[in-house]
Simulated scan of single mutants.
Amino acid sequence: MTIVSRRTLLRGSLAAGLAGPALFAAESARAAGPIVKPLPPELFNVFGTNAETRWESLRGTGYHTPIDRFFVRNHTSTPLIDHRTWRLDVHGSGVRRPLRLSYADLRALPAREVSAFIECTGNGRSFFTSQQGQTVSGTAWKLGAVGVARWRGVPLSRVLGLAGVKREAVDVMPVGLDAEWVDGSVNRGHVRRPLPIAKALDDVLLAYEMNGEPLPPDHGFPVRVVVPSWIGIASIKWVGSIEVSSEPLSSPWDTNYYRLFGPSYPAEGSAPLTEQVVKSAFELPFPATVGAGPQQLTGRSWSGGGRIRRVEVTTDGTTWRRATPHGAAGRDGWLRWSVPWRPEPGTYQLRARAVDEHGHTQPEQTEFNRLGYLFDAVVRHPVTVV
């Protein structure tokens, strides 16, 4: 694997017929920084290595989140990897035949396309503090650390099949090629997190395209893992190796992090987190200022536990109205919705809550955990009408 300059990456991509808007963005981005693509303030709130989508920028954009406004979650900086020298190594005690695939090898395999959301586990973290008065650590996301894309790639199960998965295999651990992450004074190594073999053989994708284009650098070029409906850390970007083991595997990302820690949990924390929770968001600035008179409130709801079946909205804190769905609810995506509103001048707190097909809903309060994961409570969205 070779880390290359932005100019070299583009030149090689053009030669291979892979160039597209997502790759050209790399050349026009800032010369230095942890994120490659432009981050205009009307599209993003930036938190160092991370960039949160502004929900108002999604209004009218359709079901899939445009690449130019898809959120970015990095531990370090986005690496620029030459797809011509990139290799994927599949190895470990759980396979019969260690495997090495090139980018061309992977793209030659039968492909599959899925529409799925990827969401940071800490999405909504800031509301532990602003709504519940609790101190948590981590990036103070509102609700913009989520996006739905159309991912195309090779089912992980097919690649594991080529390597000959043994019956006794229990865990599969993809490892990213971004720089090793240092937390304080502790080097945690490359980002990695094990998947149970049953999940790895189910619906996990090794994706090389996003919304019909080659993956942009910030979103995992040349290849990333996509684990539908699970917490975002499971969807390792810039994957370079996959260990398949006949013994349980672990990493800091399922022991030190991505468990629930706090007074309601054992000292070692909860079990490692898997599925995402139910959330809803308005396509409005936070806070928002709007004009008086008739208008349509729009938003989206999603769940890691199943399709959204119902969304309700209140503008007065008392009366809940059923929102009108727009399009079908995706199994691993979201439901777009709207509700009419005719406000008078004043201040309001809008709220939306959703229920998925298995009855999971949004509570009034999320149980506290110190790392601020899985905030699923109904968010109070402040709006001033003038």
Score class of each variant (00 low, 15 high):
D203W: 07
G220C: 06
A145F: 14
R259N: 07
E52C: 09
E312G: 11
I3L: 15
A15V: 08
E119G: 01
L215D: 00
V114F: 00
L249G: 01
L43K: 12
V339P: 05
G269I: 10
D89V: 14
V227M: 11
R125A: 01
D82V: 11
S77M: 02
G306Y: 01
G262A: 14
H190F: 15
P21H: 15
N211T: 05
D82Y: 08
P248H: 03
L215C: 08
R69E: 07
F282C: 07
F127M: 05
D376F: 02
L14Q: 04
T135E: 11
R69P: 01
R309G: 10
D254T: 12
I236A: 06
K199V: 06
L143T: 06
I118Y: 03
L18G: 02
H75C: 14
D218M: 04
G138I: 03
G262Y: 07
I81F: 08
G333Q: 04
G359R: 05
P382G: 07
R59C: 09
T366Y: 02
W337H: 09
A111S: 13
D68Q: 15
L297Q: 07
R100C: 09
A179N: 08
L9T: 00
V172D: 11
G346V: 03
F286E: 11
R87M: 06
H190R: 15
R97Y: 03
T274G: 15
T135L: 11
K166L: 14
K279N: 13
P363K: 13
S246Q: 02
G232D: 09
F127N: 06
P266R: 07
E113H: 01
S13L: 10
R69F: 02
L201K: 11
K166H: 12
V186K: 14
V159R: 02
P110D: 03
R188I: 04
D171S: 13
S93Y: 05
G372S: 05
H326S: 15
H326V: 15
I118G: 00
E42N: 14
L43R: 13
P266A: 02
A292C: 03
W141K: 02
I81R: 01
G153V: 04
D218P: 12
P41V: 10
K279A: 14
S241Y: 04
G48L: 06
G291Y: 08
R30Q: 15
D218Y: 00
E52T: 12
P287Y: 12
F117A: 01
G327S: 01
D316F: 02
L39F: 05
I231C: 15
G161V: 15
V278T: 04
F71D: 06
I231N: 13
I35G: 07
R224K: 13
T298S: 06
T324H: 10
V146G: 10
W302C: 11
